[in-house]
Amino acid sequence: MVTLQEVLRLLDQSKNEALLLAQSSLPQSQFEAFRKIYLNIFGKNGLEKELARLYAEDRKQDRNGQE
């Protein structure tokens, strides 16, 4: 079984690569705005939070014997 930590680690790697690409392509002020929006979408209050919720929900179903 894949753990949430493994998924989040892979997500962090991809986020870092995307942010490096944006930083190399955008002026500093635009990069800062992009970074803020990007992390709101994919970071701890965005996709990461949703993945954690889904993972917890799936684990709960497994404990209850449901599919």
Rank of each mutant, 00 (worst) to 15 (best):
N40E: 15
Y38W: 15
N45A: 07
D12L: 05
L47Q: 07
K36M: 12
Q28D: 07
L21I: 14
Y38M: 12
A22E: 00
G43D: 02
A18E: 09
I41C: 07
E17Q: 15
Q30M: 02
N45G: 08
Q13W: 05
A22H: 04
F42C: 04
S29W: 01
Q13S: 09
F34Y: 13
L19F: 06
L8Q: 13
E17G: 04
Q23R: 14
K36T: 15
K44R: 13
S14G: 10
E32I: 12
N45L: 05
L10H: 13
S24W: 00
R35Q: 13
F34A: 07
F31I: 05
Q13H: 08
A22M: 03
Y38A: 12
L8W: 09
L19S: 04
L47G: 01
A22N: 01
I37E: 15
A33E: 15
A22V: 01
R9Y: 07
Q28P: 06
F31D: 03
N40H: 13
A22D: 00
G46E: 00
P27W: 01
N16K: 15
A33G: 07
L11Q: 08
N16C: 05
L10W: 11
S25D: 05
L11D: 03
P27V: 08
N45M: 06
D12R: 11
K36D: 14
G43K: 02
E17H: 09
E32W: 08
N45V: 09
L26R: 01
D12C: 02
Y38K: 10
Q23G: 09
Q28N: 05
N40R: 15
L11R: 08
F34M: 06
S24I: 00
Q30H: 09
S25E: 10
L8S: 07
S29T: 08
N45P: 00
L47E: 08
N40A: 12
R9L: 09
D12W: 02
N45E: 13
L21Q: 13
Q30E: 11
I41H: 09
L10F: 08
L20N: 14
R9T: 12
L19P: 02
F31V: 04
L19T: 07
F31K: 07
L47I: 06
F42K: 04
Y38G: 11
F34Q: 05
L26E: 03
K15M: 15
Q23L: 09
D12E: 10
L47C: 03
S25L: 12
L19K: 10
S24D: 03
I37P: 01
D12S: 09
K15G: 00
S25G: 13
R35E: 13
S24A: 08
E32A: 14
D12A: 08
S24H: 00
G43E: 01
S14P: 00
L10D: 13
K15D: 12
A33P: 01
N40D: 15
G43V: 01
F31R: 04
N40I: 05
L26F: 06
R35H: 08
Q28M: 07
S14R: 15
K15S: 06
S24E: 06
K44P: 04
E32C: 06
K15R: 15
G46K: 03
P27E: 10
A33H: 11
N40F: 10
Q13F: 06
L10S: 12
